[in-house]
Design a protein around this nucleic acid. Structure first.
Lengths: 198, 198, 198, 198
DNA sequence: ACGTAAGCGAGACGGTACGTCTGGTCTTTCT
DNA sequence: AGAAAGACCAGACGTACCGTCTCGCTTACGT
């Protein structure tokens, strides 16, 4: 596992952080999580796998939870953007399906489930998870819904917060219990709770 | 913490298990979980708090997860029975509201959330959690739904499995994110997804 | 390095300390010291070599210095007893020669030099070294000298303390500088400073 | 601790070594040794105290031992010269007394004891200590003794090497054990081992 | 009724990971 | 090119739990 070598250090100007080491840590953490589960995700194992000293990890991340948060945020912004511009019933339905797929298949989806789980075990994790991931995303989702309603694309039966919980909740619950999300579940939820135009 | 002593041992006939120790362990585990969270729930801490030797715990439970499962099963059968006899839309709505309350307030609800979380971290936990708690309960819930449909009390828009996921999912999701479940959320879900008679 | 196995634990009655582990630690420490020097004498290395958990070492010894002290005291009592019963000029000369040999050849001699050195670096070590080894031995040596003088075997030119320093000092100094102690050095010191009978 | 700045750099011509930094390092090392002992004498601490970068130290000294050697050699040449010109019993006695005083009181004496101690822990230190300090000084001391014998000032009972060990050994030993050197010890040793004229 | 076998509190054991500290190297930036 | 700054890999520190084990005690059962 030679890991990091021979890339140029200091990709970013203005500080001296080793970008290669940063990426090696993020990838090592994600790989370990997917391959061996959260219990194998020790700081020592990450350091070993990334070819990095433990101190390098502690210098930049206060805990392994923040490593996962970094991975999750970067990846979910990239691969699961919230469609806030001109959202339609169709684009919302697609977003929900993509979300189900993200949770089931994407390494970052595993990351999200793990953080949601760890947040149950530890209040500090819960706070950081809400602050850095959950609330920003919920805000974007509610904005999406509000805008779609304003445009007349949908007529939700509940407020944006409760509606999103009703749409997202079943998908997350299925992922947590290891069940697949049936297509008609998403369709029916959209149909009944959003009541799309025409 | 003098703990357990001076109660009569051997409540059950046929073996020599010390019932006082068993209860002390279950209560210690639950107390620790509620007071200090899962991360404080170590076997050593349980033993310390229960006034019991570590070996006594390992003799009867293969892991601390099984301790929580024991607690959860006993308490949820007692305090949150599934209304399988002559279920109506009303009794289902009540069950869902009770479930939300159970998750938010009852120590055993904390237990359930913790186990659901730990199941994300560890496959063995996931297997045992499904086997001992989740599947039996899901079977009972689906039976409740099927019976209610047969009696004409409700006309679900989806199959029993997907319907239950759609009803329970949002409640669990709210509990996991620390949010309260709004009353109208349950009402609307029942209304739209179960379409109760009259 | 299988180390400890298959001896009966709990050799001593009355407590539960594992005598096999204790000896394994003492020997491992001594071996490491002789083979690789003090800088290789880390608690982790001792534990590794002894086939023992680090915690076992910390349970019984507050620092590695105490491990060396245990070794030194046991071995020097066994292999270099102070001849306090009816000492003569001859037995004192022999004791000094044995002492030179002990410092140069015996693993426990290396131990003594190391502790004397470490006592220069660390005041806590100095205190414990004096308390547990140096002062008891100096008392015994002065008693030896005093008794020999009372019996008329020797007529020291100085008080017992200064005389012992003058006799032992050169031997220790030679050992510290890696020089051999010439035979006639000991002989001359005894002759000139103790002025033995006839 | 603003440390070094604003003196003129490049005091020596011909290279670009910063003399101010050099002195700052030597003084910082000595101060730390005297104030907090050898265990506090880390390269990082020296750099911090001297207001100098770690790399500056590693550029000019292969190890902290060489820093101490530099200090020791400069100071002991200055404050404890070996009286090789026309030595007498008196000057030798004075030298020995000064030596005892140097070990007990002078910061550089602490330095010498520390190096002698560290030489027990590390063979590389032992080699450099002998090469740079101990052997040159022993050669000078033996020359002093030989010349004094040639001049008829003293008639040593042993060869110069063994005699010096017999004289210096007790002084060093007392310093190592934290004991004061009694006046009559030096006097008696000179009297008995050197047998001065008249 | 009495020996025996099991459960018990206690806690030592070999391990693994924790988060911190320092060592010695290397790179960047400034002077 | 030297120096300050400080990130980097490496690995020891002392602590907390893990799950296993042995010990000596108490207690109920089966002769």
């Amino acid at each position: 596992m030679p890991a990091v070598n021979s890339q140029p250090r200091r990709a970013r100007s203005g500080n001296r952080r080793d970008e290669a080491a940063r990426l090696a840590v993020l990838h090592a953490a994600d790989d370990l999580l997917v391959e061996h589960g959260f219990s194998a995700l020790t700081v020592e194992a990450i350091a070993r796998r990334a070819g990095v000293a433990k101190q390098t990890i502690y210098r930049w991340w206060p805990s392994k939870v923040e490593i996962l948060l970094d991975t999750l945020i970067e990846d979910s912004e990239k691969r699961l953007p919230v469609p806030t511009e001109l959202p339609t019933a169709d684009s919302i339905r697609t977003y929900l399906r993509d979300f189900a797929h993200f949770l089931a298949e994407d390494p970052a989806g595993k990351c999200l489930l793990t953080l949601l789980a760890e947040a149950q075990h530890d209040v500090a994790t819960a706070a950081r998870f809400h602050e850095r991931y959950l609330e920003p995303r919920q805000i974007a989702e509610r904005e999406m819904l509000t805008r779609a309603a304003e445009e007349g694309e949908v007529s939700p039966a509940l407020g944006p917060e409760a509606t999103m919980d009703a749409l997202v909740g079943p998908i997350v619950y299925c992922a947590l219990t290891g069940a697949a999300v049936p297509e008609e579940l998403v369709d029916t939820l959209v149909e009944k709770l959003l009541r799309p135009r025409a």
